[in-house]
């Protein structure tokens, strides 16, 4: 029976004195541990994709119901900020991939620099998102049931006047000119815009937590050529966050 064990030399001893201190007791060797982790990470990413898929379906249905209203609505998004954010995320994807390479080669300093750049990009993305969001809130392009929403059918005169005054009422007058039904359809665009980008933003925040944790562990000297699993999986997650944005940007900002 012993020939079974000879295939993986560490298997029977892993419990007591494994060759690598990074090897958990229930794995035979580091390769199995890495493979399993990577496989699990991919499964998690599949879950993430399906998580967004629900919202993409809503997007597709409402868009195909009223394409003209959605084209009209998309012009209120700021393509410039969206494009900058796309570049920011692409850069961050590049640096995080580089950081993985650094870890594999044992270049801890370079790895930390790349991770910090990635984290800064993520922060920059959120700042720009904040600028965009706050503008939308000020001009009233928000959920229809909020008090100061242009799409609120029971909007108060007070809120209405405030929205009309903002930025010479440019947005206000364009939306006011629509019929009630058209306003509902345009309102759907912004509902879904906030849901999609909000959910994505939440994932960016989660990514920032992961990146910070990786930086702390990196500073502690945890990563090296024999242990880069965590940073590899973290980078995978970051790529998917980036990828979702690559879909969001044209779907929301560019089709108009």
């Amino acid at each position: 029976m012993m020939e079974v064990n000879t295939q993986s030399p560490t298997s029977s001893q892993a419990d007591d004195h494994g060759h690598s201190k990074h090897l958990a007791h229930h794995f035979d060797d580091v390769h199995q541990q890495f493979d399993t982790g990577k496989f699990g990470m991919w499964m998690f990413l599949l879950t993430e994709v399906m998580f967004f898929a629900g919202l993409f379906v809503l997007y597709a249905v409402y868009r195909s119901n009223h394409p003209e209203a959605w084209q009209f609505a998309a012009q209120f998004l700021d393509t410039k900020w969206g494009a900058i954010n796309t570049v920011v995320l692409l850069v961050s994807s590049f640096t995080v991939a580089w950081a993985v390479r650094n870890a594999q080669l044992g270049e801890t300093r370079k790895m930390l620099i790349n991770l910090v750049i990635t984290l800064l990009c993520a922060g920059g993305f959120m700042v720009i998102k904040y600028i965009e969001y706050s503008h939308k809130v000020h001009v009233g392009l928000v959920f229809p049931q909020l008090e100061h929403s242009l799409f609120n059918p029971n909007i108060t005169a007070e809120a209405s006047a405030k929205l009309a005054a903002y930025e010479q009422g440019e947005v206000f007058h364009q939306i006011e000119a629509l019929s009630a039904a058209e306003r509902n359809w345009v309102g759907k665009f912004f509902s879904i815009y906030f849901c999609l980008t909000g959910l994505h933003g939440f994932h960016v925040l989660a990514g920032m937590v992961v990146l910070s944790w990786l930086i702390l562990r990196g500073m502690r000297g945890d990563f090296g050529p024999d242990n880069f699993n965590a940073i590899d999986f973290g980078a995978l997650y970051w790529h998917i966050v980036d990828l979702v944005w690559i879909f969001l940007f044209p779907l929301l900002y560019l089709i108009n």
């Binding site: 229809p144 049931q145 909020l146 759907k188 509902s191």
Partner: peptide, 14 residues
């Protein structure tokens, strides 16, 4: 909580 209106028929939701 926020009234997104996506499933609300009064606001054109389905």
């Amino acid at each position: 909580m926020l009234g997104v209106g996506i499933f609300n028929p009064d606001l054109g939701g389905d």
